[in-house]
Amino acid sequence: MGSATSKVSLKLMIEPKGGGRVLYAEAGKEFVDFLFYILALPVGTFIPLLNQEMVGSLGNIYDSIANLSTTYLRPNVNKDSLLKPKAYFSSGTAGFPLQLPNVESSRKLYKCCLNVFERKAICGCGSSMSRESKYIGPPSANNPYSSNVGDYVKGEVTYMVMDDLAVKPLSTTSLATVLNKFNVKDTGVLQEKVVDLGVEEVLKLLKASLLSKSVLTDVFLPVF
């Protein structure tokens, strides 16, 4: 299962005016990879992590599945495949220190006839898919069975992560655009603050990303 194996740092650029807000953060590859990794996770992994503290009704769908008698499920449907979906990431992926806790990963495939599934199931021919199969294909970040999953952006680049988690390379042009957007005339008024991310911060970021357009401010400014 995934875990945050080491700390990752962010440099927050804060505008103190009006109670304070994070204009943007300077981030390295590790943090940007983590943000992209979130998008690749099955939605069902979010709800247990957040203790169902979500705006909306996804938690109700989760509870409905948990409470539904197997009498109403098709024979080849396993509840755990919906309630505890597996993400295709190895917990030891090099260069990928930030991961969500308790996210199960799997690289196993099972086959029967010409069908291949990520879990043991009943094939269309009626036989059990119990034979393990290997995926053969070119390794790439888009291939969920590749060892490169979780390794999305180039290193040795500083990225600008906005308060709403929009990501772009940090450059003179992108910085000028942000300062102009927020009507910041003097960069000297901005405060710098370096924060470390571990398991607790990762979960707060995940929750805030589902609820807010000011994620970095909501997660990190209350500590100041």
Rank of each mutant, 00 (worst) to 15 (best):
I38P: 04
S9N: 10
K86M: 14
Y159S: 03
S64W: 08
L12Y: 01
S212W: 02
P138Q: 11
L205Y: 01
L50A: 06
G19S: 07
L206Y: 04
D164F: 05
G126N: 13
P85Q: 10
E30K: 06
G20E: 14
T93Y: 12
F36S: 05
S106V: 05
L68M: 15
I47Q: 03
K207F: 00
Y135S: 11
L221Q: 06
L82Q: 06
M129N: 04
N115Q: 15
C123T: 11
L216K: 01
K207M: 05
G18N: 13
L203I: 09
P16I: 03
A87T: 06
T187R: 14
R131V: 12
S106T: 10
S90C: 12
R21V: 09
V199S: 14
M160R: 15
V22N: 00
K120W: 07
Y159K: 02
V194E: 07
Y145G: 13
N142M: 14
S147T: 13
T177A: 11
L12H: 01
S174I: 06
E156D: 15
F96D: 10
G188R: 12
P42Q: 07
K185L: 14
L41H: 01
A94Y: 09
G44D: 07
F224R: 12
P139K: 09
P139H: 09
I136P: 00
V77D: 05
V153M: 04
S171R: 03
V77F: 14
V77S: 08
L206P: 05
S3A: 15
K168P: 04
V202Y: 11
L190Q: 05
F220K: 12
M160N: 14
A176H: 12
E200Y: 08
G56K: 00
K111I: 03
R74S: 11
V215L: 02
V184E: 04
G2K: 08
P16T: 01
V22A: 02
S3N: 14
C113H: 00
T187H: 09
T172Q: 10
Q191R: 13
L203Y: 01
V103N: 02
D63L: 13
S214Q: 07
S81R: 15
V178M: 10
V215A: 02
G124F: 05
G188T: 08
N76E: 15
V219W: 08
L49I: 02
M129H: 06
V219C: 09
E118C: 13
S212D: 04
P48R: 04
P85M: 11
A25L: 14
F89E: 03
D33E: 09
N102I: 01
V43L: 08
L175S: 08
L98I: 12
E132C: 13
L50W: 04
P75Y: 08
E156Y: 07
D164R: 11
K181E: 12
V184L: 05
V161E: 00
P101C: 07
P138W: 01
L23W: 06
G137V: 04
E156L: 13
K84Y: 03
Y135D: 12
P169L: 14
L221I: 12
Y37N: 07
A176N: 15
V215S: 01
F34T: 01
F182Q: 07
G2P: 12
A87D: 04
G28Q: 10
K111D: 00
V32A: 07
K11D: 07
T5Q: 09
P16F: 01
A66Q: 12
V149P: 00
K79A: 10
E200G: 09
V153D: 04
M54G: 02
